[in-house]
């Protein structure tokens, strides 16, 4: 049992490092980023917005066909826009990662899947998840080579 735990210790330490090492050492200077997002059944255009942490994000939302909404996960943003009109949304991108923005007004059959993405860099969550995946796969292979199942 002690040998098994010792084998798992190095990958566990690496995994902790992957989870907690600071990734914003090369953070860009915050700027204001303006986007015009057009909502139409059942897509946002552009589909993906990329900003850096600390940026002030200004989104002008326009609906081109029917009434749409924009709900941004974890950013407490939820607006509704009528066709032919526009709404402006402003917020500071303080949380990093990928956040989906969704239509929040029932707009037709594919409404629940009308989704766009705001990626706030550095995307720590993705980088850490990739790191953990590689550590887990390698740890599993090392563990299996040292302690093959079914062998004493």
């Amino acid at each position: 049992m002690r040998k098994r735990l010792l084998t798992l210790l190095p990958p566990a330490l690496v995994a902790l490092g992957v989870l907690f090492v600071p990734l914003d050492m090369f953070a860009a200077t915050p700027v204001t980023r303006q986007f015009t997002v057009q909502a139409s059944q059942f897509a946002f255009d552009p589909p993906t917005l990329r900003v850096n942490r600390g940026d002030r994000v200004v989104i002008t939302l326009e609906a081109t066909d029917v009434v749409h909404g924009l709900y941004l996960d974890e950013y407490d943003v939820n607006v509704r826009v009528e066709p032919g009109l526009s709404k402006q949304i402003e917020f500071v991108a303080e949380k990093t990662g990928k956040f989906r923005y969704r239509c929040s007004v029932s707009c037709g059959s594919l409404h629940p899947f009308m989704i766009g993405e705001l990626v706030v860099m550095p995307n720590d969550a993705f980088a850490r998840a990739v790191g953990l995946t590689l550590v887990a796969a390698l740890a599993a292979l090392v563990y299996l080579s040292r302690f093959p199942p079914g062998e004493a």
Partner: peptide, 14 residues
């Protein structure tokens, strides 16, 4: 298709 942001793909599937 369903969770991605690609409207053109949803339009094809729809």
């Amino acid at each position: 298709v369903l969770l991605g942001p690609w409207g053109w793909l949803k339009a094809l599937a729809n």
